[in-house]
C-alpha cells in the first residue's frame, strides 16, 4: 500500500490569503493513499522542510506531494529534502497552486480553492504512480568557449583561466576589446578603459 504525505504551503499570504488552506488539506487529504496531510506557513523554509522530514519518518511515508509554488522554482529543493529523510528524490510531485492558481485567480477565491484541490489531486494521482529513479553520470570536458571578446568576454575568460581551466575566446572582429576599446575615459572614475 502506498503511503503518501501531503504538505500544503501558505506561502505567507500568497496562497493562504486567497484559498481556504485547511479546507483544501481536508478535501485533498481524502485521496486514496494519503496517510498524512498538513499545512505550514512556508514549506520551503528550514522548519517547513523539517516538518516534511519528521513526517516521513514518523508516518513511514514512501512518497510526498508538496502543494506550493511552481516546480520550476522549488522542485530541486524538496527533492533534496525527501532525500535527506531517506526517500528516493523522485518519489515526489509538486502541485503548482501559486503561479497557476492563487496568483491568477485572486479575484475568485471559491474557484481558486476548488482548483487548488483539483491540482493537488492531480499531483497525488501522479505520485501514486511514480517509481524510484537513479541519476546517471556524464563526464565533463573542462574547457570553456567564450563567444565575444568585449569587456564581458575578456573578464569571463580571464576569471575562468585564472581558476586553472582552458578557455577559447572567439571574437569575430580582427581585435578583441569590443565597444569598450572604442571608448575614452569611463565614468564614474574617468580612468582609461583599455
Amino acid at each position: 500500500m502506498k503511503r503518501i504525505g501531503l504538505f500544503v504551503c501558505w506561502c505567507g499570504s500568497n496562497i493562504g490569503g486567497v484559498i481556504d488552506v485547511p479546507k483544501v488539506v481536508q478535501e485533498a487529504g481524502n485521496f486514496p493513499g494519503v496517510v498524512y496531510a498538513t499545512d505550514y506557513k512556508y514549506m520551503c523554509s528550514e522548519p517547513g522542510q523539517d516538518t516534511i522530514i519528521k513526517a516521513i519518518k514518523e508516518h513511514n511515508l514512501d512518497r510526498v506531494v508538496v502543494a506550493s509554488c511552481t516546480p520550476r522554482l522549488h522542485e530541486p529543493t524538496f527533492r533534496k529534502t525527501i532525500a535527506k529523510a531517506g526517500l528516493n528524490p523522485y518519489m515526489f510531485e509538486m502541485a503548482n497552486i501559486r503561479e497557476q492558481c492563487t496568483w491568477v485567480h485572486s479575484d475568485d477565491k471559491e474557484g481558486a480553492t476548488k482548483k487548488a484541490v483539483a491540482l493537488i489531486k492531480r499531483a497525488l494521482a501522479k505520485v501514486s504512480k511514480v517509481e524510484p529513479l537513479f541519476e546517471s553520470y556524464i563526464p565533463i570536458t573542462k574547457k570553456a568557449l567564450v563567444i565575444g571578446g568585449g569587456i564581458a568576454g575578456m573578464q569571463v575568460a580571464i576569471d575562468i583561466a585564472d581558476a586553472g581551466h582552458q578557455v577559447i575566446l572567439v571574437e569575430r572582429e580582427p581585435t578583441i576589446g569590443g565597444k569598450m576599446a572604442m571608448l575614452d575615459k569611463t565614468f564614474p572614475t574617468l580612468d582609461c578603459s583599455a
Binding site: 511552481t70 520550476r72 501559486r98 503561479e99 497557476q100 496568483w103 491568477v104 485567480h105 475568485d108 476548488k114
Partner: peptide, 15 residues
C-alpha cells in the same frame, strides 16, 4: 507561471 508572476487573471477552470 509568468502569467502568475505578472498577476494576470484568467478563469479558474483551466487546469
Amino acid at each position: 507561471d509568468l502569467a502568475g508572476v505578472s498577476r494576470m487573471k484568467y478563469p479558474a477552470n483551466v487546469r
